[in-house]
């Protein structure tokens, strides 16, 4: 009988831990989920000002301005919509005009996206899936192997 009640206690502890984990996961997920928007989607239904989001597309040719004191201003396009992005951090080494890019940050004014992080695509064969999707919808996508 004693062994049985001890087993009950152990099961109860395990259940508590698991319920706690599920609760924590659900609470954390609410704040940690970051939505991805393509330039077109932002034109159609702009996110709230200050909401932390990710945007992605191609860096528009000829749009990059690099101030002498660091950071960059550029436009991200998916062929239909365009977003003006301002960024005062260090650009990734793979950042180039005409290449895929993902930026994380928020709109602090309706027409300028303030990026806190800029991720450029990692190598020749890789395109972030969200960017590829956005480009396909914008008809800029050239197919799988256009190198």
């Amino acid at each position: 009988m004693r062994a049985r009640s001890q087993r009950m206690i152990m099961v109860a502890i395990a259940a508590l831990v698991l319920i706690g984990a599920i609760g924590l996961a659900l609470i954390a997920m609410r704040d940690a989920v970051i939505l991805f928007y393509s330039p077109t989607e932002i034109a159609d239904a702009p996110p709230a000002l200050g909401e932390r989001i990710r945007i992605g597309g191609l860096v528009e040719e000829g749009s990059v301005v690099r101030p002498a004191d660091g950071g960059a201003d550029f436009r991200v396009t998916d062929g239909v919509g365009t977003i003006h992005v301002t960024y005062d951090g260090s650009l990734p080494d793979l950042f180039r005009e005409g290449q895929g890019v993902v930026a994380e940050g928020a709109f602090h004014s309706p027409d300028t996206f303030t990026a806190t992080t800029v991720l450029a695509k990692h190598d020749e064969t890789y395109m972030p899936p969200e960017v590829a999707e956005a480009l396909r919808e914008g008809d800029v996508w050239q197919g799988e192997s256009d190198e």
Partner: peptide, 16 residues
């Protein structure tokens, strides 16, 4: 589509 889960989720859930 296009959701990403930030590091905050993992830190918050794993730490305790």
């Amino acid at each position: 589509t296009g959701i990403s889960v930030g590091a905050a989720y993992f830190n918050f859930t794993a730490a305790p």
